[in-house]
């Protein structure tokens, strides 16, 4: 192999380049594919509930008003607001690409430590990601339907990030710790944010019926789990595929 000693700047090590492009490629494929499926599922199952809630948020419908309100109002159909739905698709794909980058990066570390990573084990990675990013923060700060009462958004975001970080470390310890001490630490990390408590509103002012809020949270969790299992499986699959590709071209 010839080395280009005339180069003015130090070139990045080929190993770093290969490793990083392998992470990037796998994550982009996995995130875009899982994100697209998640977006379509959200448009089909979450968006109608959200639009229904917005009728109460805007005051068009009034819960416990003078007259009983039908639980089945006329809602705009799927894709009736093209720009809004298109933005949702783009942002969901972006969000899941972000998840996939974190997931594949951690997969590469695990593989470096001798753990097998492929489409099958990717399912477990996906479930762990769902617990860290959806279930752990949502266990106390439940997915909010528009119009619910909530505490200051910045305070909730701080709690959200701290809870996700703690849960992510906990899931890693459960997966790879391998001894009782790491399981105990993992349990403490999973419990602590909820024992401490999340920022809660002082008073309840939400005008949205509880039936809508409950359905919204259930569906947000359900689609989160499906999308995370997919992003994990895809990430593991593409990570393996890129490995054979990298070896073939090396």
């Amino acid at each position: 192999m010839t080395r280009h000693t005339t180069s003015a700047t130090q070139p990045a090590s080929p190993a770093t380049e290969i490793m990083f492009s392998r992470i990037l490629t796998s994550a982009l494929f996995a995130g875009a594919a899982a994100g697209l499926i998640a977006a379509l599922l959200q448009l089909a199952f979450v968006q109608p509930v959200l639009l229904h809630a917005e009728l109460y948020e805007s005051g068009e419908l009034v819960h416990f008003g003078a007259e009983a309100v039908s639980a089945h109002p006329e809602l705009p159909g799927m894709f009736s607001e093209l720009t809004r739905d298109a933005l949702s698709v783009i942002f969901t794909m972006l969000t899941y690409t972000g998840y996939a980058l974190v997931l594949v990066a951690l997969m590469s570390v695990a593989e470096g430590q001798g753990h097998k990573v492929d489409g099958r084990t990717g399912v477990l990675w996906g479930i762990a990601g769902f617990v860290a990013f959806h279930l752990a923060p949502g266990f106390t700060l439940a997915p909010e339907v528009p119009g619910v009462a909530a505490a200051d958004v910045y305070a909730r975001q701080v709690w959200w990030f701290a809870t996700v970080a703690a849960a992510a470390v906990a899931m890693w310890l459960i997966a790879f710790g391998g001894n009782i001490i790491s399981y105990v630490i993992a349990a403490a990390l999973l419990l602590a944010p909820h024992m401490i408590g999340a920022p809660e509103p002082d008073v309840f002012t939400g005008p949205v019926p509880t039936e809508i809020g409950a359905l919204f949270a259930a569906r947000a969790f359900g689609i989160g789990l499906v999308a995370w299992v997919l992003v994990g499986a895809f990430a593991g699959y593409f990570w393996q595929k890129e490995a054979s590709h990298a070896e073939a071209t090396a």
């Binding site: 090590s13 190993a15 770093t16 490793m19 990083f20 992470i23 990037l24 994550a27 942002f91 972006l94 969000t95 690409t97 972000g98 998840y99 996939a100 980058l101 974190v102 997931l103 594949v104 990066a105 951690l106 590469s108 570390v109 470096g112 975001q157 959200w160």
Partner: peptide, 26 residues
């Protein structure tokens, strides 16, 4: 050989991923 460079790549990918999540979500 990839152990050291791998950690660097992983850290950068995690930073990028969290950046995207912060942008789209927060």
């Amino acid at each position: 050989s990839g152990a050291r460079t791998g950690v660097l790549s992983a850290l950068f990918a995690i930073a990028l991923g969290l950046g995207i999540i912060t942008l789209t979500g927060h």
